[in-house]
Design a protein around this nucleic acid. Sequence first.
DNA 1: GATGAATGAGGATTCATTCAT
DNA 2: TATGAATGAATCCTCATTCAT
Lengths: 217, 217, 217, 217
Amino acid sequence: MSEDTPEEPKPRRRQARGERRIAQLLSAAASVFCTNGYTATSTNAIAREAHVSPGTLYQYFPNKEAIAVELGGRLLDEMRAAHGQAFTPENLTLPLPELLDVVVDPMIEFNCENPVFLALMHGSEVPGRIAEEHDALHASLLTSVQGVIAHYAPALTAEERSRIADMTFAIFKGGLGLVLAAPAGAERDATVAELKRVLLRYLSPLAEGSVTTTPTR
Amino acid sequence: MSEDTPEEPKPRRRQARGERRIAQLLSAAASVFCTNGYTATSTNAIAREAHVSPGTLYQYFPNKEAIAVELGGRLLDEMRAAHGQAFTPENLTLPLPELLDVVVDPMIEFNCENPVFLALMHGSEVPGRIAEEHDALHASLLTSVQGVIAHYAPALTAEERSRIADMTFAIFKGGLGLVLAAPAGAERDATVAELKRVLLRYLSPLAEGSVTTTPTR
Amino acid sequence: MSEDTPEEPKPRRRQARGERRIAQLLSAAASVFCTNGYTATSTNAIAREAHVSPGTLYQYFPNKEAIAVELGGRLLDEMRAAHGQAFTPENLTLPLPELLDVVVDPMIEFNCENPVFLALMHGSEVPGRIAEEHDALHASLLTSVQGVIAHYAPALTAEERSRIADMTFAIFKGGLGLVLAAPAGAERDATVAELKRVLLRYLSPLAEGSVTTTPTR
Amino acid sequence: MSEDTPEEPKPRRRQARGERRIAQLLSAAASVFCTNGYTATSTNAIAREAHVSPGTLYQYFPNKEAIAVELGGRLLDEMRAAHGQAFTPENLTLPLPELLDVVVDPMIEFNCENPVFLALMHGSEVPGRIAEEHDALHASLLTSVQGVIAHYAPALTAEERSRIADMTFAIFKGGLGLVLAAPAGAERDATVAELKRVLLRYLSPLAEGSVTTTPTR
DNA sequence: GATGAATGAGGATTCATTCAT
DNA sequence: TATGAATGAATCCTCATTCAT
């Protein structure tokens, strides 16, 4: 209502404070979602974990779902920031084993540090509800996978590509579950290696020039 | 008041009625678990779906978990009855592609007819709680898979075998999710074929002395 | 509808059977009332304890209260039968200490064998409901006490007599509680003796013109 | 943001509101316990009586028992505060009749104003359960009584003293029931007088070397 | 009569969400 | 903004009572 300079700091601080609160709440939510699963998590539990009152929580999120959605979105952004470069043009030219290293390793690392991510995807347990929003996340990841596949096997029809991407993603999610369940260390590393082996064996025949004789039954 | 046969009908009828109720309740539970997921399913919702009062439900099951456990147990039995013969000695001598047909097809079929099965396994969402009982189901299936793998690749160490079985099972669960999500028909069939392809490519190099040339598509 | 003689046996048997059932149910009820208290006792628990179905219970009693009422009534009758002669004219002429022996001892004995009796009186916890019927029991006992007091101290006004009878009865109930709580044996005997001491000291001054030197301990 | 005093009101108000709610709930509980007895009282009924939602009740008490325990504890404190001085050393030197006045009168008055107190003690109906906590209350009172008795009759053995204290307390509880049942006024006063008479006659012979001529009526 | 399945209202308790302060 | 008290609908589960067999 008056000058610019004296007023800016306040909004900024407010925003900053708000951001801190939101981060705090999302972090608490992540923790509780991991422990109890999405459905079994109460907003009060999130607020408690965040050392904040329930009222405060509802000042930043209209409901429980919104928390999950925002959390998923942020994780996706983080993930892209953290290893979005995995899909650089140069990487796409790598031979499959190297590409898998370049793509899978940071993805695994990210998920080990943010196990909510998987929890949220499994939170899609209930079709229709939160799923809608979570699917954005899901779809976004699928698109990346489809991109790689399209590059490796440009001759595929759209349906084939889509199916292979779905399957690849499903394998990855399943393998990721095993990886997270394994105790960090040698066992986990071995599980990661096994996952890459699956993907390599599944995807390598796609490589162009391959004499695609689908093995007879 | 003398012979045996004329007295039996009464208990039988009672038992029959009880069994019908239990079946009815389990069927309702299956339906609701599929729709809402295990955690989000209320016992009242199950009772409602079964057109029965909550009190009746509790005459047969002490709580929600018991319903899930019984349901899982019955499905497992049904599954074994329906395709337990898949793991017959003769089948184990089949070449991998045929073995996969023999094992995967009935498994898929069973799960298409009983989609709760997958829902129950995902109900293990929250580690540690209900999981304990659900894991019986899980473990039971894993054992079968390990058996096949042990037969195909007897030289593996126990850890390797275990890891491969876990991974195989994870892949199957993931693929099964895709299959169930696909509309029945050509699309679903293609998804099943794709799942078999993954498994074939992943597992065929295990066959001893195999010159692990991954088969091209 | 026909003759007398051929028909009587049946009703008799029925009545006999019915009586047995009722006795069985009342005995079960007594047991469960003692263990859990009246309010916390469920009719199903009574039926279970009686090895009878809930339906059967309701064939003999219209509701839970009726069970308590019938039980109380029967106990009262039993009690009267067992020691109703305590209040015979001769006994009333006994000196107070002897009278107390003659009245208190069988009463205590009866209650030790039928601890429900006290439970039912305390069941009057809730004023107004079951109380109404239980009060019959209560009133009946009070009348006896008033009789004795009237004999010992005929000069009292009705209010005084009533008050003293109430107090005497209250003391007895309180003491009975202690007696039942004491382990059978020396401790219980001592408690009974103490109760008689209270009553003796309280009531002996009532004897007209008595220059009572209360015995020192 | 600087001094202490301006910041305190907030927490205070909160605490004050909370304390008011708790008081309100306890008062409602007292009322309902008196009317229906402990066992038959539902938490919903307490909430309703307090004009509060069930959720609110559970914000302050984890369950029904906790309400009873808190209520009993507060009453005990109040009682001690209100007439704890009854057991002062000087009072112990009073002759028994005066001591009884000094001890019994405030106790009766307190119980007339807080009839739940008796209800809670009778709530121990079911042995073993809630009793445990209620017994603290019970034991606390018994200890006081034992103290007085020890002073009046130091020669008694521990068992005798304990038994006499139990009996005295039982008499008091029984008499208190009569007092509360009597309509306030002359009748109640007479009942109180009668109770004191019982106690006097019972306890006066305890006084050592006393050649007690029990007063005739 | 006897059975035990069935009922449904009610009790304890939780939780997403709102609101006064 | 932040708080945390308040709400009330919804859970899980029990129990007095009824009913078909």
